[in-house]
Amino acid sequence: MPPSFKWDSLKRWETLLAVVLAVVVIFNISQSSVFLRVDNLVNLFMLHIEKIIVVLIMTLIIINGEIDLSVASVMGLGACVVANLYERGVSMEAAILVGLGVGALCGIINGFWVAYVRLPSLAVTLAGLIAYHGIAEMLVEDRSIGNFPDWFNQLGQKALIGPLPLSLVIFFILFIIFAAVLHFSAFGRYVFVIGNNREAARYSGVRVRQVKMMLYIMSGVIASLAGILFAARLGAVRASTAEGFELDIITVVLLGGVSIFGGKGTLAGVGLSIMLVLCLRNGMNLLSITGNTQSTVIGVLLIFSVLIPNLTQDFQGFWNRRRMIAK
């Protein structure tokens, strides 16, 4: 039977993540009797739901060998467009559609420069980060826009299916779709091949530019959607909405074992990494560790996720040499 994933790499990193996750979960249970209750788990996800929705598309982009630093700005811009239009009397439904369209447009702009002009995505999306944020500022200035219709505000919190709010339902659906696309579809295969070796992919007749463009458009739309959901959850929009989220998002992806150089990673690993980061933050909350120490811990985790395998490799090499000399 063909293996469904690359078991070799899965065994190592994903197992490690699962073990660490189990430890954190056990700790959390020991600290709080309500940890495993459904409302607590829903709450766990909901605290960072917008980020983890964007994590899914970021996974594909990084596996493809690129990066999108502009996602947080697109999130903010999506929310600001919706708020601004609503304030001007446009209906909320139409405003949301325009917001998603603006997200797609941001994606097209990023994708054009990266895929067709072949500029480094780090520089392009850094410019995007600043520019899209700037447009959001133009729209909202230093105000806070709120007073959205009730149905919109409830989108952010009210349970839709069973105990799950809309954004959580969206997350799970997207997770399943992305897992299927990345690991079982032709598009996913192309994403990996291009991430491994862009030129080899081109020589095999893969439409490299279209794939990259597609990914950036998806990134724009999903980021904008996440920003709108964020607005619904908070009930108000500022120009600074979602500012700085890009680093958290990228951290979760890399912690999930996705290679920053592209071509390697699984959505299973990213799923575990999402759970780990959420549970870790929850556990630290239980210990009343503040948000900043939490980001410190996540930062350390990020570095260690690459450092430890490297050091183990060094140690193994050293050990092998010692053994050979001894022989």
Binding site: N197, E199, A201
Partner: peptide, 17 residues
């Protein structure tokens, strides 16, 4: 560099085009 995607399986390489 150009003919194969080295980290991927033989089967995936053959089916790619």
């Amino acid at each position: 560099q150009l003919g194969l995607t080295l980290p991927m399986s033989i089967a995936a390489n053959i089916s790619l085009p």
